[in-house]
């Protein structure tokens, strides 16, 4: 049963990717572009076909906070998980809870199928108002299970459908609704579009931050992040 569901999900992803390939001609959604996708886009005759997709993630913090930090990230990425586990909590207590900044997580699922599945599953959790609980659970799993940071275990089942369901049950989601959402692949095309949009925006790796108007590539230390924030507050 699980296998069939997995296959169905796989087929749907393949179909969506296929449609995107047709839509973008030789520019294969950036997945196989080693070089900067900004460069690839500008060298490409179809560069006018920019994908825009609105992130569905809830923004953390007060809408009136002065500075917005966007994080482009992938649930399979161990450095993104390190950010979520160690730096985001400090950011929350020092800046988000004090209404100085607001924070938005944007999917950049660049590391393969399970990056896509997990991001789509997080949107299913969002349908039940438990986005952040599920998001934190996924990153907890990544930090515990995917091995050495520089050699993570990717696309080997940590975020299989069965496991995504078990994490959903850990955070107390309504499993009928969650399974329904996952099985319908409701958010898969949104998430695949987000991957395309991220690479088109110049995100070649994760995590990738935009602090106000300042881009920052990779995992920053908290002190670096603080200096980038303070410069704009």
């Amino acid at each position: 049963m699980q296998d069939n569901e997995q296959k169905t999900l796989g087929r749907i992803i393949t179909l969506v990717v296929f449609i995107l390939i047709i839509a973008f001609g030789s520019y294969v959604i950036g997945f196989d572009q080693g070089k900067s996708s900004v460069k690839s886009t500008s060298n490409n005759k179809n560069s006018s076909q920019t994908v825009t997709v609105k992130s569905l993630t809830p923004i953390l913090g007060s809408p009136s906070a002065k500075l917005l930090i966007k994080e482009y990230a992938d649930y399979q990425c161990p450095y993104c998980s390190e950010f979520n586990q160690t730096i985001l909590p400090q950011l929350e207590s020092d800046y988000i809870n004090t209404n100085k900044i607001k924070f938005q997580f944007i999917n950049a699922p660049l590391l393969g199928d399970e990056s896509v599945y997990s991001a789509a599953a997080a949107y299913c959790a969002n349908d039940q108002g438990k986005y952040w609980q599920y998001h934190n659970e996924l990153y907890l799993i990544t930090s515990q299970k995917n091995g050495d940071e520089s050699h993570p275990v990717l696309n080997k089942g940590i975020f299989s459908q069965a496991n995504l369901e078990s994490y959903a049950s850990t955070v107390g989601l309504n499993m009928n609704l969650f399974d329904q959402c996952l099985n319908s692949s409701k958010y898969v095309s949104t998430v695949v579009n987000e991957a395309t949009a991220a690479t088109q925006a110049g995100v070649n790796g994760t995590p990738y931050f935009i602090i106000g108007n300042q881009p920052y590539e990779g995992l920053p230390s908290y002190s670096i992040l603080q200096s980038l924030i303070q410069a704009q507050l």
Binding site: C77, S150, Y216, L219
Partner: peptide, 17 residues
């Protein structure tokens, strides 16, 4: 290189680049 402290993941690898 642009900056210290930029470990991250690309499709190919997770490393210090």
């Amino acid at each position: 290189y642009p900056k210290d402290d930029t470990p991250g993941c690309t499709k190919e690898a997770c490393n210090f680049r």
